[in-house]
Measured scan of single mutants.
Amino acid sequence: AQVHVDGVTYDFDNPEEAEKFAREMAKRKGGTVEVKNDQWHVE
């Protein structure tokens, strides 16, 4: 699973880890999390 944050792509073998990371980053940035094509996007 991939997580996109500020133009940087992070690869995770485990989708749950990807989701956890995406939500944590969004919380830190005060942003939102979107899922597109099985990829997490932190805005």
Rank of each mutant, 00 (worst) to 15 (best):
A22D: 07
Q2T: 12
V33Y: 04
K36D: 09
Y10F: 10
M25W: 02
A22M: 08
E17W: 04
Q2R: 14
W40H: 07
G30K: 08
E34V: 15
E43Y: 14
H41C: 15
D11P: 08
T9S: 07
E17M: 06
Q39S: 11
R23M: 11
E43T: 15
H4L: 13
V3Q: 00
E24L: 03
D38M: 10
V8S: 04
Q2S: 12
R23D: 13
M25K: 00
Q2P: 02
N14D: 14
A18L: 02
A26H: 04
R28E: 12
H4G: 02
E16P: 00
A18N: 01
D38V: 03
V42T: 07
E19F: 02
A26L: 02
A18W: 01
K36I: 14
V33A: 11
V8P: 00
V35I: 13
G7H: 04
T32S: 10
V8L: 10
M25H: 06
E19G: 00
Y10Q: 01
A1L: 14
P15D: 11
A26V: 05
D13Y: 03
T32H: 11
E16H: 09
P15R: 12
A26W: 00
Y10M: 03
R23F: 11
K36S: 09
V42F: 05
D11G: 05
G30P: 04
T9D: 04
K20H: 09
V5G: 01
E24S: 03
K29Q: 12
D38L: 11
V33I: 10
N37P: 06
N37R: 07
E34I: 15
Q39R: 09
T32Y: 13
K27R: 09
A1G: 08
E43H: 14
A1N: 13
E34W: 14
T32M: 09
T32I: 12
H4Q: 08
E19Y: 05
E16S: 10
K29M: 15
A18P: 00
V8R: 11
D38G: 15
V42H: 06
E43N: 14
D38I: 04
F21D: 03
H41A: 09
G7S: 03
R28P: 04
E17S: 05
E43Q: 14
E16K: 10
V35W: 14
R28W: 06
N37E: 09
D11R: 11
V42I: 09
E19S: 00
K29A: 12
V8K: 11
F21Y: 05
V35S: 08
D13S: 11
P15K: 12
G31I: 11
D11N: 14
V3M: 02
D6L: 05
V3D: 00
K27Y: 04
V42D: 04
K29P: 05
A1V: 13
D13R: 01
K27P: 02
T9F: 07
E19M: 04
R23A: 09
Q39G: 15
A18E: 02
E19V: 00
Q39M: 13
K20D: 11
E16A: 11
G31W: 09
E19P: 00
A1I: 14
M25R: 01
V42Q: 05
G31E: 07
K36P: 04
V33H: 04
N37D: 12
W40T: 06
E17N: 03
D38R: 08
K36T: 11
V35K: 14
G7L: 02
V5P: 01
P15N: 12
N37T: 05
Y10D: 01
W40L: 09
K20Q: 11
G7A: 01
R23Q: 13
R28L: 15
F21N: 03
D11Q: 14
E24F: 01
W40S: 06
V5K: 02
N14T: 14
G30F: 07
T9K: 08
A1D: 04
R28D: 09
K27V: 09
K29Y: 15
K20E: 12
V35M: 14
K27M: 07
N14Y: 05
K36G: 07
D11C: 15
K20L: 07
A1Q: 12
V3K: 00
D6V: 03
R28T: 12
E17Y: 02
H4P: 01
V3A: 02
P15Q: 11
E43I: 15
P15F: 12
G7N: 06
A26F: 00
K29T: 15
V3G: 01
V8D: 05
V33N: 05
H41L: 11
K27N: 09
Q39K: 10
E16W: 12
